[in-house]
Design a protein around this nucleic acid. Sequence first.
DNA 1: AATGAATGAGGATTCATTCAT
DNA 2: TATGAATGAATCCTCATTCAT
Lengths: 212, 212, 212, 212
Amino acid sequence: MRRAVRESDKAERRQALRDVAWRLFQERPYEAINMQDVAAEAGLAKGTLYLYFATKEELFLSVQEQQFAAWFDALDAHLAGLAPGTPPEAIAALVADSLAGAPALIRLLTITHAVLERNAGPASIARLKGLMRDRLLAIGARLEVALPTLRPGQGARALLHGYALIVGLHGLAEPTPPARQAIRDNPDLALFAVDFAAELQSALAALLRGQA
Amino acid sequence: MRRAVRESDKAERRQALRDVAWRLFQERPYEAINMQDVAAEAGLAKGTLYLYFATKEELFLSVQEQQFAAWFDALDAHLAGLAPGTPPEAIAALVADSLAGAPALIRLLTITHAVLERNAGPASIARLKGLMRDRLLAIGARLEVALPTLRPGQGARALLHGYALIVGLHGLAEPTPPARQAIRDNPDLALFAVDFAAELQSALAALLRGQA
Amino acid sequence: MRRAVRESDKAERRQALRDVAWRLFQERPYEAINMQDVAAEAGLAKGTLYLYFATKEELFLSVQEQQFAAWFDALDAHLAGLAPGTPPEAIAALVADSLAGAPALIRLLTITHAVLERNAGPASIARLKGLMRDRLLAIGARLEVALPTLRPGQGARALLHGYALIVGLHGLAEPTPPARQAIRDNPDLALFAVDFAAELQSALAALLRGQA
Amino acid sequence: MRRAVRESDKAERRQALRDVAWRLFQERPYEAINMQDVAAEAGLAKGTLYLYFATKEELFLSVQEQQFAAWFDALDAHLAGLAPGTPPEAIAALVADSLAGAPALIRLLTITHAVLERNAGPASIARLKGLMRDRLLAIGARLEVALPTLRPGQGARALLHGYALIVGLHGLAEPTPPARQAIRDNPDLALFAVDFAAELQSALAALLRGQA
DNA sequence: AATGAATGAGGATTCATTCAT
DNA sequence: TATGAATGAATCCTCATTCAT
């Protein structure tokens, strides 16, 4: 491995590590990923990985930051052109669609609170939350344009509620194997056979309509 | 320990174990509770506990079933008398209030998907989900009475969305120690200093209004 | 492995584990012994070992207790028949000889303070110290018989000083490989080429003479 | 950092490093000190530190050399004026007092054999031992003047035994936290509640009396 | 039915040291 | 001479679960 001496080399290396972590996370659950693997896949020694990320949680927080930003960007682009008066349903559909293709991102969100934020430094957490804040405000503003009935500041809050909805819905929409079987075997439980995108869209639409 | 021979003795013992587990869960996080302690506090040996609950997760799923039922009962009683035309805000307030006093129950909900349903039998999961279904439908029906604009079947779905909201909001409203510090130290992040009850009420109200 | 159900079975198992630990300790340094090896050599699983000894340090504290007791017994037998008026040199020689054949025991003593007593429960430490106290007092009494000039109570204290001497002398008498080489290569350092038994005898004799 | 080109610059730098190491050692245990900190506190990079000291152990061996020399000097000054016929008790008191104010030095002595001499070059060890030899002989000679009954050469040997005593007594006089608790909780163990200075003085006096 | 002895998987992290720059 | 990026060894203990008694 060439030594990363310049600041830009180091940034590259951090990026490479994030990429590896993200790739592994798409393949397997968080607990099944160990730091040894991440380092090895990046062609580095374990100790070196720790030069770039202080803990496993910080690494994945950083991954989240990046993936989240990418998703926000995409969403932002979609929302950019919305004319005032766009129906809430259309907006909800946009959001739901943009998430439909990113199941791993949602999985990452669901471990943020219970796992990542337990063993990361306040600085890293603040960084991620700062990013989220900026984006929520920006996209919230777009929402307020599209839905003129939304009062100023309500856009970001609606998004925060949407965020909670996404996380909570994931647990219903992605049942564990035994839960899946339970649902399959009991027709009565059809209520819980939730289609993530559809349900999210419906709930989000309601949220937006109600918020307005 | 007297042998639990009759079916009723066994049921009592199961109940005693649930009670112990619930008490411990109110005192400490799930990971900090071990089966040894549960058994010992109930005056039983570890192996005996396993005669009553096949896994730690099944035990807590059973605890959840019970606590959930109790909470549903209380909520049901509150909603029972609602006249048609009750404003969604009032209903949201009722729900939020009924949860405000039960933080442990919410904590239990948040580990259902990520933890409990990973190592429990489909039968136990089906039991819990069956209970939920019944209650969701019953309370959903009450909602439909109170909010006549709600179409048939929409009540239960609104509740399902509310459930997701509760779970997701918990992660925002109960920051981990480093997250708490991050929020405290960065005034910019005030957006994330969420008051659970207030935020839930607001979001639920929007959901109900929008759903209708 | 047969289950150790009766108390006597368990005592046997504890003993077997102590035996294994002691054997390994005679072969290699403390740091080179791991709990996995101890368990495996005793035909048990690692976890089972922890049912019998809470930490590695407790295990070796228990080993020390036993080996120490054995050494004390041997010494006691030697000292038992000493007539009043035995010269201090003879007594010192007895002690030095009894230790000469037990280099591992001395090595064990030297890690007691720096290692074992750092991660063991007060109860285990108290047990060992209690044993030592009893023996020091008993043998101290014998010393007082053999050396009538010793005032009551001085016997045990002399032994305590002797204990310190033993531990301290070990560091000089058993040089590490590089220290050995340094001494070998520099004739000037002959002063530090210490013969443990001889030096201990000489110092102990002086101590006893001076104490009297 | 200015480059240390001249020999005197390098000596200064070595000294600065020793000073930092000694300061840190007075604050915390050896294991809690890392080379990174030593270098940083001296305003150097880690790698630079290794230009001056080949290993962590060599660094602390060098620290010991210096501190030891200082202590010897002080002791030597105290002993210089002793008239023939000084009682052994007075000499022992001098030694014990001179050590009483230097607990870190004793701590450093106790890790010499078990730690420092395990990973240092024979040359460094020889240097330290050479220093010790010179001082032991010099002070030994003074002892022989003060205690005329001491045969030639016995002075240095008595000091060597004293050295062993100091190291061994330290383990008894500075119990670890659990050992301290064990002693506190069991009145029977009062025998082990040793006051370092007092016990050392008493034992040293006996040693000197007996050696004479 | 009750017991409790036995099992064994599972992994992040530190830090002395090296060596390319 | 100075730097600091890279390396990689090294390991104790917990606890859910099983199963012989």
